[in-house]
Amino acid sequence: MSLSPAELIRIAQLARIDLPSAEIEPTCAQLNHIFGFIEQLRAAPTDGIAPMSHAVELSQRLRDDVVTETNQREKFQAIAPDTEGGLYLVPKVME
């Protein structure tokens, strides 16, 4: 497992983290150092083992279909960077 600079750029774009070009090489090296450590996973035999996504082996609990929430827009939008007329504002989205 080795992450190339091109892959790192793609990953950073997917993660929406701005990565100045000067940081690409060192970041790549550091991540590859960590991945080198993680690499030992691949040698472990896991045939027939079911993946474990949760620490508890239970079923999803279901909620009754009842409206329990009230309008808290004022409170929630008091901490928002940019709002108008009850809407959150973001830079123009191009579809």
């Binding site: 909620r63 279909d65 009842v66 409206v67 329990t68 929430e69 309008n71 808290q72 827009r73 929630f76 939008q77 007329g85 009850g86 809407l87 959150y88």
Partner: peptide
């Protein structure tokens, strides 16, 4: 349904913007 799939907010159509957006929804 009456409420959202993962929260207790109403799904009624036509509410004021973000008036039916709970902590979970936002």
């Amino acid at each position: 349904t009456q409420s959202k799939i993962f929260s207790g907010s109403s799904i009624a159509f036509g509410a004021a913007p973000n008036a039916q957006a709970s902590a979970v929804d936002i």
